[in-house]
Design a binder for these strands. Structure first.
Lengths: 164, 164
DNA sequence: TATTGTTATACTCTATAACTATA
DNA sequence: TATAGTTATAGAGTATAACAATA
């Protein structure tokens, strides 16, 4: 049962890594909280996309995505164009100002990481990135619609809206 | 400048790993949100300790720690004993019920991780744990009181309380 | 009828500041 | 005066549910 202790430890690390993320978020420009930064980053990396696609990449609910997108759109960092193929959809596109904001984000977070990880080798950073990517993939795969078995493992739904 | 892209990617992974953490928190027992689970885990692992020590291990403010501790204490999972050496302090101790709750937490999170990480080797999990531990250490070291230089790197203090 | 997206509501986590009590 | 801890308040992130528009 050595694996059990390993999983306990991994759970602990996952719980604690939030502090690192907070340190990174703290250096973001004003008016640009973490949620906005994530939207800009993903749009810059993957190009124009619909809300639903962005929500999937963010791994949060569409309603959450909608709020983050409204925030960055209100500041002129992205534009929401109608989708000619589906009038319900909106195509998101980074503006020039958004690209500049994204560059600034990148500068700041990279600087912080460069300072903190000064004694890390390129290979170590690459390895951490690889393992975190795989971790997300191992979890994300279970969230696809096809991956829902007929009977859940535990039968508690926990969906009751706080019956206090 | 290959490192720059690497840091960008690491920042992205850090931002996105929250989804994994949320998946893990979702399976926790009722009445035991993530903050409570972290308190129980650290008390179980490191033994009795003071509030300030726990806050340091949690890497959150003492005020946040106080709230989490109040939550678990109200449910009988820990006890707060007066410190004979310093009447301002409180010594936290896991109760029997708290230990049982902790065992249940461990069971549930380990089960989820075992399912999701079924195709991971022990070595891969160990490596991820090692790198995450080092990441936290690389960031945490800068937070010690001695690590504050006379002049900060950038002169923006960002401490102004939102001058909107 | 199902899907895309928005909005209202509620909950968790966090930090800052003011406060009490000890040191 | 400084430190340990509590509480009040505010801000960010998220999920669920109800809704509008379109497929």
């Amino acid at each position: 049962m050595a694996e059990h202790a390993q999983f306990d430890e991994l759970a602990r690390q996952l719980s604690a890594v939030g502090a690192v993320k907070r340190d990174l978020v703290r250096v973001l420009p004003p008016e640009c909280p973490g949620g906005s930064a994530a939207v800009l980053t993903l749009l810059g990396r993957h190009g124009d996309m619909r809300m639903s696609k962005l929500a999937e990449l963010l791994a949060v609910d569409l309603s959450v995505t909608s709020r983050h997108v409204a925030h960055v759109a209100a500041r002129g960092w992205i534009e929401r164009h109608p989708d000619p193929a589906d009038k319900r959809s909106r195509i998101l596109r980074l503006t020039t100002a958004g690209q500049e904001q994204l560059d600034e984000l990148s500068r700041r977070t990279s600087q912080v990481l460069a300072e903190r990880l000064g004694d890390w080798t390129d290979d170590e950073v690459a390895q951490l990135i690889r393992l975190m990517t795989r971790l997300r993939s191992s979890f994300g795969d279970c969230r696809s619609p096809s991956a829902r078995p007929s009977a859940p493992v535990v039968e508690e739904t926990t969906r009751t809206p706080a019956s206090t």
